[in-house]
Nucleic acid binder design. Structure first.
Lengths: 266, 266
DNA sequence: GCTTGGCGTTGACATGGGTCAATCCTTCTT
DNA sequence: AAGAAGGATTGACCCATGTCAACGCCAAGC
């Protein structure tokens, strides 16, 4: 579970303790996911307001961040690690509504209490804000509100894609769609880092290898399947050459175009 | 299909032709769904801006309003009738992502082109706005943006409920959940009308009778089922007394609490 | 009043994916 | 190095739901 953290023995860039409210030594200024998150739209002045109400928070792999029904007093920005959001039925059936990666924001779809639970899949670093304070900042930061609306728009469109997947796709189509989602997500955040001037060792980077930070059970609960079906479908995809499984948490995709056709039912 | 329109031989309250940009004789002022729609947050001044860019539009039952992939040049407010939004797979499989009722807004989850198709289920009256103009109004109407964000939030939460339904519920649970959705939606919009001071003949109103404006095929495509399964599940629910079917488009629910338990898998 | 065409329902049968259970890795522990 | 434990995989079987096809009902048109 702590596998993909081996490269990050510590979360290097940020101090582990309380964050200073002044921007000068605010972690936001050096935030590694600034360009990808809701903060991307803000100028220094505005960012300072957010920094003033943000606190870093560290969560170990496997632990719960909050549960559906808890009073929704805090919002979060994921800055490192992977999180799953999920809902439960009374008898324990689980639906994962999304996986969150660095740059993602938690707190759009909420009323007074959280409408889903959140659990850390890997070790996670979060930027935590009191909801009441966030609301105050929001009220005087129209650009932030605008940005949130656009984020919400995107999530809504994604949610609709997921409905199509859950309601109408076969197991095979679901799994392939999922891999393509992950690949596109990865591409996009890579691109954002490059645009921000980061130096990525583009040499030893394989375009077609996708990380699967989560286990089979989480994949199954995301796609409306069982672990057994996920497993069987993977070996089937492996057998017909659509993918290779490097290990349990890494797939190499064999040709995005043909995979895209599988995902659409062609 | 035009059945539930029989009470509305004409869409009485609004003029059928172009709308005057002045608020005085703007239809918005007399709009029957003003309190339930995005417009609810606006004062007269702001409403005038919206009115100035709005045009009424009438669509016959069964016709398409736009298709997935069309350039998204217009946004809409539903003022009368029922609409389905849906996505298609290449081979024709269909997923209905939502049914829209008076007061609902179309245009949150879009990029440059529509990410779903929209079709009128009954005769429909829409309030149509050019997207570019709407953006201009939005830029100077923070309250509108705030309102949109809150609408988007709610839709996201609903979308997540729908994922749980599609991914993890049985046919029986799906259908009952759907009926409860419709009932709650109806209650809410009734309440909004009452709050707005409307005189509803509360005498001959049956709390537990729910209208199903859409056909079995649309219900099936919304719930990730087939028409046959919908039909069979309905007769099963009828048999064990959970519901009564008054006619093809009206159900009477037998006890919301017990239905809520069925919907949650208890 | 007959015909036509859309739905909706029902029946018989097929199957994708679920269930239950055994086995196989890995990785961690000692 | 052996053991233990938590995934992941595989197999055998089952069942909820899909598929295919017949039939019924009702409203619209001739």
């Amino acid at each position: 579970m702590a596998k993909q953290q081996s490269k990050l023995p510590e979360f290097a860039p940020l101090a582990r303790d309380e964050i200073s409210p002044a921007l000068a030594n605010s972690p936001c200024a050096a935030c590694t996911v600034r360009q990808q998150s809701v903060c991307a739209s803000l100028d220094d002045n505005e960012l300072e307001r957010l920094a003033a109400i943000s606190r870093a928070m560290y969560v170990a792999a496997g632990s719960t961040i909050f549960n559906e029904g808890d009073p929704a007093d805090y919002l979060f920005n994921v800055t490192d690690g992977v999180i799953k959001l999920y809902k439960l039925l009374a008898d324990g059936r689980e639906q994962v509504t999304g996986f969150l990666f660095p740059g993602d924001f938690i707190g759009l779809a909420l009323k007074d209490s959280y409408s889903y639970s959140a659990e850390a899949i890997s070790a996670v670093r979060l930027c935590k804000m009191k909801r009441s304070q966030f609301r105050d900042v929001l009220a005087v930061t129209p650009r932030l509100e605008h940005r949130l609306l656009s984020v919400a728009s995107n999530e809504l469109a994604q949610a609709q894609d997921q409905m199509l997947l859950l309601g109408r796709k076969t197991a095979r189509e679901k799994i392939v769609s999922f891999f393509l989602q992950l690949a596109e997500r990865r591409d996009k955040s890579r691109q954002a880092q490059i645009n921000a001037g980061a130096e990525l060792e583009s040499s030893k980077f394989d375009e077609d290898v996708v990380e699967l930070p989560m286990g089979r059970a989480d994949i199954a609960d995301y796609l409306g399947l069982t672990t057994e079906t996920v497993s069987r479908t993977l070996t089937q995809l492996k057998t017909d050459g659509s993918i290779q499984l490097l290990d349990n948490h890494q797939v190499r995709l064999g040709g995005r175009e043909s995979l895209r056709e599988i995902a659409q039912g062609l």
